[in-house]
């Protein structure tokens, strides 16, 4: 039972990763790609970690270490890329008819 629950969490995590990658493909400009990429994939990793925690409860300490590290660094990485683009003068995409 607990194995099925853990596997389901992993599957949900994989689906969020897929969603992030899909957003990467669909979004019209680089800022929006960063947005969908970071958010969905971060939650995807967290769900995967949770699922693996269910499958192997004795690994919890290292899983928390990985999760905490990703939560701290992943947004920083995205912000640094966005900042570099902004400083380099890349303007955000605007919808047609919106100014």
């Amino acid at each position: 039972m607990i194995n099925i629950l853990g596997s389901l969490f992993i599957l949900v995590g994989a689906l969020f990763c897929f969603l992030g990658a899909l957003g990467l493909m669909r979004m019209p400009d680089v800022y929006n790609r960063i947005q969908t990429g970071t958010k969905a994939v971060t939650l995807g990793v967290l769900f995967t970690l949770l699922g693996v925690g269910f499958l192997h409860p004795d690994w919890w300490a290292k899983l928390i270490a990985i999760g905490g590290f990703l939560l701290m660094t992943n947004p920083v990485g995205s912000s640094v890329i966005a900042r570099a683009l902004y400083k380099a003068g890349v303007q955000p995409w605007r919808a047609e008819g919106d100014r």
């Binding site: 994989a14 990793v45 990485g77």
Partner: peptide
């Protein structure tokens, strides 16, 4: 189409890869 897009893709891919590695451990 430009370097920044590839960089964003790399960033996302590395996190997905981390996720896959954790999954592979299980």
């Amino acid at each position: 189409p430009a370097t920044p897009d590839r960089l964003v893709a790399t960033d996302t891919l590395t996190v997905v890869a981390t996720s896959i590695l954790v999954f592979m451990a299980a």
